[in-house]
Amino acid sequence: MGADEVTGGFNTVNISGWIWGTDITLDNNLDLVSWWGQVDLFTYSYAWAGDPKSIDDDLYSAIGENDIRKDQFIDAYGDGVLYPIGKFYAPAQTIGGQRSVETDYVYMRIAEMYLLNAEAAAKTGDEATALASLKALLDKRMDDTSYLNTLSGNELLDEIYLQTRIELWGEGKSYLAMKRNKATITRGPNHLSYAGESFSYDDDRLTLEIPQVEIQNNPNIN
């Protein structure tokens, strides 16, 4: 995805860089209860009605000023809430305008493959490959990526993890990335709950338990 597509709405499977998605049409009968309703100010649903999904302030601050992805998050009403309407938006961009959802669902993008390759390479000691994969992606997001050449070891791993969180924000990837990297996340000051508190990857509250009925009836468990 080039710079124009990074801020182009993420709303159609025809965008370059998508590997897997769903082509939503009116026949799907999606409206209030939809992913778009959760994140898009321009869809008539939860985000429009006062329950916005906004980026963590600390994560937003970590995005460089020369990074096009900074423009994915916009203070729509001047109240400091950064809506992701520079990344996800219905094409008409009319507040609350999309009543019946026609914008598509993205599940997987090529960018994720570059980031996973960088992560795997760094963890196996192949830092040259890790840097090459990370640079190939970030060269399309930033004016200058020369700082990457100074990174190695844990600093390189931390940068790959950070860029994964930034690049794939809102795409359902951060949970498993946190688990893989055994990370601890501190919630920024703009959260309604647990603001400023830190959560480790192995916190019980971040562990999805196997249902009892599955344990009892699945012969492949235990």
Rank of each mutant, 00 (worst) to 15 (best):
S100K: 09
Y114F: 15
Y175P: 11
D158T: 14
L162N: 12
L151M: 13
S146D: 13
L151H: 04
R180G: 08
M113L: 12
E127Q: 13
N154R: 03
A118N: 01
L115N: 01
L148P: 12
E112W: 00
D144L: 14
M178D: 07
L168N: 09
A121M: 06
A122D: 07
L148I: 14
K123V: 04
K182S: 09
W169C: 14
D126P: 08
Y107E: 14
A132V: 14
E102T: 15
L156Q: 10
Y161S: 08
G153N: 04
L151Q: 01
E127G: 11
Y114M: 15
Q93N: 04
M178V: 13
A128E: 14
R180S: 12
A177H: 10
D139H: 04
L176A: 10
K173Q: 15
A90C: 03
L168P: 10
S146Y: 04
N154L: 05
A118E: 01
I160T: 01
L115K: 08
L138I: 08
M142Q: 12
E112M: 03
M178T: 14
D104N: 12
L157I: 12
A90D: 01
R180Y: 10
P91V: 02
L115Y: 02
Y105S: 08
Q98W: 00
D143L: 10
E119W: 03
Y89V: 00
M113Q: 13
E102C: 10
K135W: 02
Q98C: 02
A177M: 07
A128S: 12
L148G: 07
A92V: 00
A132I: 12
G172K: 02
Y147P: 07
E167P: 06
A130S: 14
T164W: 01
D158Q: 15
A120E: 12
Q93P: 00
G96S: 01
A92I: 00
K182C: 06
L157P: 02
I166S: 03
L138T: 08
Q163S: 04
M142V: 07
L162Y: 11
T150I: 14
Q163I: 08
D104A: 07
I95Y: 00
S174M: 06
S152G: 09
D139M: 10
A111H: 00
G170H: 06
A90N: 00
L176N: 11
T124W: 05
N149E: 13
W169E: 05
N117D: 08
F88G: 00
A130M: 09
A92F: 01
L162D: 08
T164A: 05
R141A: 06
Y89K: 01
D126G: 10
L176Y: 13
D104G: 15
E102H: 01
Y105R: 01
